[in-house]
Amino acid sequence: MPEDFYCDEVLSGKTKVDIVMETENVLAYYHTKPYWPVHIVAIPKKHIHSLITLEEGEQGILLELLSVIRKVAADVTEEHGACRVLTNLGEYQDSKHLHWHILSGEKLR
């Protein structure tokens, strides 16, 4: 896997995705290899390494990202009754680009 799958593959257009929601600075789409029946990823279009490396000038993007996550999570909860919202940091973060997962259902694998 590339160091930054989201910049290298998704945002570059190399990997096509099924978009759930898009704003000027944020993209939410169905995961290309889902681990849950509903598995949506939300990312900033600007490269931000992770939540803990976020710089002061990037807080507006974080607010826009959280707004998209909130809307998508509300839609998933309405349709499926519940959802999880999570992000990974450090060694748990496979792709070094800030991203959040919106999930519903029992883990597939």
Rank of each mutant, 00 (worst) to 15 (best):
V20A: 05
H101E: 00
H49S: 12
V20E: 12
K46R: 14
L103T: 02
M21Y: 14
I61L: 06
I69T: 07
K96T: 00
K107F: 06
M1L: 11
H99F: 10
Y6F: 15
L103D: 00
P44N: 03
M21G: 07
M21I: 02
R70M: 14
C83Y: 10
D8E: 14
P34C: 08
E56Q: 07
L108N: 05
S95Y: 08
L62K: 02
E58H: 00
W100Q: 02
K96M: 02
L54I: 13
L51E: 00
D75R: 13
P2R: 06
C7R: 05
Y92P: 05
E79C: 00
L65V: 08
G60K: 10
E78K: 14
L86E: 14
W36G: 02
T32F: 03
H39V: 01
L51M: 13
A74G: 15
G57D: 15
Y30S: 05
P2G: 08
H97D: 01
K107P: 10
I43K: 00
L89V: 11
K71Q: 13
A73T: 09
R109K: 13
L98I: 01
H39F: 08
P34H: 06
H47C: 00
E91C: 12
E79D: 13
V85K: 06
Y35C: 10
T32K: 02
V76P: 07
V10I: 11
T53D: 07
R70F: 14
R84A: 10
S95A: 13
L63Y: 14
K107N: 08
D18Q: 13
Y29Q: 06
D8Q: 12
T77I: 09
A74E: 15
G13E: 00
Y30Q: 09
K107T: 08
D4Y: 01
Q59P: 00
K71C: 08
Y92S: 14
G60H: 07
S50N: 10
C7S: 15
R109Q: 09
P34I: 00
L11R: 00
T87M: 12
V72L: 03
P37A: 06
E106L: 10
K45S: 00
L62R: 04
T15L: 11
K33L: 09
V38W: 04
C83V: 07
V10N: 09
H101R: 11
Y92D: 15
G105Q: 05
C7F: 01
A42V: 15
Q59S: 13
K96L: 05
H39L: 08
R84E: 15
L86C: 13
Y29A: 10
I48F: 02
Q93F: 06
V17Y: 08
V38I: 15
G60M: 07
K14L: 11
L86V: 10
A28N: 07
E55T: 12
E64R: 01
E106M: 12
P37N: 08
H80R: 14
L54S: 03
